[in-house]
């Protein structure tokens, strides 16, 4: 019986310790607790809680504003912290529009790496800030987005060079492989560049495919 009592005692103490540790880490030690704890408005500190922008039309619940608390609806944060700055003025009302529609990333997440999408099993990491305009195209199709020269140039280039004949981009274009083979002839390019754009990517990619055995690229490059 003594053995069983020790088993009960040690297991219970272990459970107790882990439960307390879980409670502390969940309620006090998250990154956003610290960020919101330092944020101030004119009236003083803000209450530390999860914040989000819900947009029922776009089916979004973006919790980015839990850390980027200066962009939370109705918050006037006075802070030098880069994270807590308000959003710069743009065409859309960011407080109703949400964040991930333009910036990509995982809006539901509340931790930095998850939210920025730099994790396994999240297919849309954040766009580099300077390419955020590329997202305008996801809603404003097939109309051209006014005043966005780069985007319309890029799209025209894509059309002119007939990339759509093999590749798929945001649900347009692409060819299925013939003969019952599964998949598309060219890879889906919708998410290319989400992790940053590398000038040498296409050269390296072409080189890799020359080295690889078979595949459509081999013929394209003119044999060996």
């Amino acid at each position: 019986m003594k053995k069983n009592k020790y088993l009960l005692l040690i297991s219970s103490l272990g459970v107790l310790a882990l439960l307390v540790a879980a409670a502390v880490s969940e309620n006090f030690l998250k990154e956003w607790h610290a960020i919101q704890g330092q944020a101030r408005t004119q009236e003083g500190p803000i209450d530390v809680r999860l914040r989000q922008i819900v947009n029922p039309d776009l089916k979004k619940a973006d919790r980015c504003v839990t850390c980027h608390v200066g962009m939370a609806p109705g918050e006037q944060i006075l802070s030098d912290s880069k994270v807590a700055q308000p959003h710069k003025n743009v065409v859309h009302d960011t407080a109703t529009m949400g964040c991930t529609t333009c910036h990509g990333g995982q809006g539901q997440a509340t931790e930095k790496d998850d939210a920025h999408g730099n994790v396994h099993f999240w297919t849309e990491p954040m766009l580099p800030a300077k390419y955020a305009y590329a997202s305008c195209g996801t809603c404003h199709t097939p109309l051209n987005v006014p005043n966005l020269e780069t985007l319309s140039t890029a799209r025209k280039t894509f059309e002119r060079l007939d990339c759509y004949s093999c590749h798929r981009l945001d649900g347009r274009g692409g060819t299925l492989r013939p003969g019952g083979e599964t998949g598309m002839e060219g890879p889906d390019l919708s998410h290319v560049g989400l992790k940053g754009y590398n000038q040498n990517w296409y050269t390296a990619h072409a080189q890799k495919n020359v080295e690889a055995q078979g595949g459509p690229w081999r013929r394209f490059q003119g044999g060996q």
Partner: peptide, 15 residues
């Protein structure tokens, strides 16, 4: 005591 001990031990493992 034996049953409670095993119950808590299982809980501990899962946690």
């Amino acid at each position: 005591y034996a049953e409670l001990g095993v119950l808590m031990f299982t809980t501990l493992i899962c946690i």
